[in-house]
Structures are given as structure tokens and as C-alpha cells.
């Protein structure tokens, strides 16, 4: 097996002495999609956010290595070099990710120019290019608009364009489609899949939805109560779930009952 791009070893997260994530260990292989599944409060998001130092007032212990570089314990300036450029992130709620009073152009070029030495004009054309790769039909118009003028699905596309514009090695997608309706959800998932294959970045996909896992993941980590309870390939997870929680998760799926007589 190729060398892991991200290695998480005994990661522990605590808030004011209360432990939220108790020692999680997993590896993310290059070009693969690793799904993290668990119910709300199981520590999925805390695991991801803590890697990037995005949890304020949290005590984070253990080790997270990105292609050999230790991330835990980095200072703010060092973390800024990692965030965005090496590890991109997309979040559940695009409306709260954007600054409501700046245009998409201002926000996109700010990201590009803070990591690369680009003139404003170059940043603009780069932004335009990346917006057209995420299937937005009128990228010029989108650039001039403010976040509130775009729908949830469009904002999610813009967020994906921004995250992938810096060509990160790892993309963390934290419930990227939970706030979207089913049709938009499928479009966004297919888009992430397509871009992931083009850029060959590794994806850490956080979700509570087994359907999203079935559609997207190569490997799966199941979290429950701040612990990693199962780690397996996606087919194994659906065919031979090991942990009781995983089995209850599979049993909670509604879809197998489709069309059955109640």
C-alpha cells in the first residue's frame, strides 16, 4: 500500500477537561475517499476540525501527520500555510462560510492571493476558471454577486471551487450535502467525485448518512461516543458490519423498505 498522506494517531480532543474524542487512529491513502460516519455528537467533526487547529479552547493531544509533517502543536502562522493550501475544507453550511458583505470575487481572490503571489487580474481569471469547473453556468455573473444572491447548491459549488483552487493534497468535506435537497445533493456528490478523480486528492468525508457513504467512500471509519469503533472497506461495512452500532446504523436505513408492503 502507498504511503498514507494523512496519518492520525491516538488523537484526543477535550473541552475544559471533558474528553470528546478519546484516542482515534486512522490513515488516509492518497487518492482515496475515507468516510467518517457517526451520529451527531460522536466526535466526527471535532476530529477533523482539531487537525487544523480550528477548535478554539480545545486541548488536542496525539499526532496528525500530513505527508510526514506533524500538525499538532503548530503555531498560527504555520497552520495558515497548511489550511487551504495543503488541506482544503468544505463545510455543511455555505451561508456561514462566506462573508455576507463581500462579493464572491473578493472572497475568492483573497484566498488565492494569500497563498500564491498573483496579481488581482491573474487571481480573477483563475477564480473564473475554477468557477467554470464546478458547473456554474455563468461564472462571470457569480463573481460579481454576494452570497445571499446565490442558492444553497450554488454556494456549495463556489465553496468547492475555492477549496480545490489551491490544489490541496487532502480535502476535508464535513457534511457537504446535508443542507441540500436530494437532487442538488446528488449533483454535488458527483461533482466532488469527478473533481477528486481529476485532481487525485484524498478526501476525508464526514457524514451521518449511509447513502452518502455508499455513493462516495472507498474506506470507512465508524465513530461512536468519541471512539473509533470500526474501520473497514466500504463493501465490508455494508456486507459484514462488525460493531453493534454499525449494525444498528444499517438497520435504520429506510430505503430497503422502499416498495415493500407495510
Amino acid at each position: 500500500m502507498a504511503e498514507a498522506v494523512l496519518t492520525v494517531d491516538q488523537l484526543r480532543v477535550a473541552f475544559s477537561g471533558r474528553s470528546i474524542v478519546h484516542g482515534v487512529t486512522f490513515e488516509l491513502q492518497p487518492g482515496r475517499v475515507l468516510g467518517i460516519i457517526g451520529e451527531s455528537g460522536s466526535g466526527k467533526s471535532a476530529t477533523c476540525l482539531s487537525m487544523l487547529g480550528l477548535l478554539q479552547r480545545a486541548t488536542v493531544e496525539g499526532s496528525v501527520q500530513l505527508a510526514g509533517q506533524e500538525l499538532i502543536g503548530l503555531n498560527a502562522a504555520q497552520l495558515r500555510q497548511i489550511r487551504g493550501r495543503k488541506i482544503g475544507m468544505i463545510f455543511q453550511n455555505p451561508a456561514s462560510f462566506f462573508n455576507p458583505i463581500a462579493t464572491i470575487e473578493q472572497q475568492f481572490t483573497e484566498t488565492l492571493r494569500s497563498h500564491q503571489s498573483l496579481t488581482q487580474t491573474d487571481a480573477q481569471s483563475s477564480a473564473l476558471h475554477h468557477l467554470s469547473t464546478v458547473g456554474l453556468s455563468e461564472p462571470e455573473r457569480v463573481l460579481r454577486q454576494y452570497p445571499f444572491q446565490l442558492s444553497g447548491g450554488m454556494l456549495q459549488r463556489v465553496m468547492i471551487a475555492i477549496a480545490l483552487s489551491l490544489k490541496p493534497q487532502v480535502l476535508i468535506a464535513d457534511e457537504p450535502t446535508t443542507a441540500l435537497d436530494v437532487i442538488t445533493q446528488m449533483q454535488i456528490l458527483r461533482l466532488i467525485q469527478q473533481l477528486q478523480q481529476q485532481t487525485n486528492c484524498a478526501v476525508l468525508l464526514v457524514t451521518h448518512d449511509l447513502g452518502v457513504i455508499a455513493q462516495m467512500a472507498d474506506d470507512v471509519v465508524v465513530m461512536w461516543n468519541g471512539e473509533l469503533v470500526e474501520q473497514t472497506s466500504v463493501n465490508q461495512l455494508f456486507d459484514q458490519p462488525q460493531h453493534a452500532y454499525t449494525r444498528s446504523l444499517l438497520a435504520a436505513r429506510l430505503t430497503p423498505r422502499l416498495g415493500e408492503k407495510r
Binding site: 446528488m186 447513502g211 455508499a214 463493501n235 430505503t255
Partner: peptide, 11 residues
Amino acid sequence: AQLPTHPRQRH
């Protein structure tokens, strides 16, 4: 647009 119930039914 329904999500698959098993990875084998993936779109």
C-alpha cells in the same frame, strides 16, 4: 437522485 443503499448500486 436517491442515494444508493449499497456501494454496489453506486451512481
